[in-house]
Amino acid sequence: TFELKGKVGKVVKIAEDHYLVEVEGDKWIAYSDEKLSLGDRVMVVDVDGLKLKVKRIP
């Protein structure tokens, strides 16, 4: 999972307290300090167990 840091993915689902992002064909639970929208491109900035911390990228 640490090899996911720096990888780019996209938001595929928005849940009440987390996001579902697809990175390299796999779906992961993710969270972010900013509000994300469906389809946003994101970069993995940290890995916390099986959850990814992501940030939006242009």
Rank of each mutant, 00 (worst) to 15 (best):
49 G>V: 11
37 S>M: 09
2 F>P: 15
27 K>M: 09
19 Y>N: 14
6 G>R: 00
49 G>T: 06
44 V>F: 13
36 L>A: 06
24 E>G: 04
27 K>P: 04
53 K>Q: 14
31 Y>C: 09
4 L>G: 03
55 K>D: 15
2 F>A: 15
47 V>R: 02
16 E>T: 12
44 V>R: 00
3 E>S: 00
54 V>K: 00
35 K>E: 11
35 K>S: 12
39 G>P: 06
11 V>A: 06
39 G>F: 06
32 S>Q: 14
16 E>I: 10
20 L>M: 08
47 V>D: 04
42 V>I: 13
54 V>R: 00
41 R>A: 11
37 S>F: 07
20 L>T: 09
42 V>W: 01
24 E>N: 02
47 V>S: 02
25 G>T: 07
56 R>W: 14
7 K>G: 02
55 K>S: 14
11 V>N: 03
55 K>Y: 07
21 V>F: 04
8 V>T: 08
26 D>R: 02
21 V>P: 00
40 D>Y: 06
34 E>L: 08
4 L>V: 15
24 E>I: 03
29 I>D: 13
4 L>Q: 05
27 K>A: 08
32 S>R: 15
14 I>H: 10
47 V>P: 03
40 D>C: 05
45 V>Y: 15
42 V>Q: 00
9 G>Q: 00
33 D>C: 09
33 D>S: 12
19 Y>A: 11
50 L>S: 10
7 K>N: 03
32 S>V: 13
57 I>L: 05
1 T>I: 15
36 L>W: 02
38 L>P: 07
58 P>F: 05
46 D>R: 02
25 G>V: 11
17 D>M: 12
45 V>R: 03
44 V>W: 01
41 R>N: 07
25 G>A: 07
25 G>K: 06
50 L>T: 13
2 F>S: 15
6 G>V: 00
5 K>Q: 15
7 K>F: 03
31 Y>P: 03
58 P>I: 04
15 A>Y: 11
11 V>H: 00
50 L>E: 05
3 E>I: 02
7 K>A: 12
48 D>N: 12
1 T>W: 15
51 K>V: 09
18 H>N: 10
3 E>V: 01
7 K>R: 03
19 Y>D: 05
33 D>H: 12
25 G>C: 07
34 E>P: 07
24 E>S: 03
41 R>T: 13
33 D>M: 10
48 D>M: 07
40 D>K: 04
44 V>Q: 00
15 A>F: 10
23 V>M: 03
2 F>T: 15
30 A>E: 00
16 E>M: 10
33 D>Y: 08
31 Y>Q: 14
18 H>V: 12
47 V>I: 07
42 V>R: 00
28 W>R: 02
29 I>H: 13
47 V>H: 06
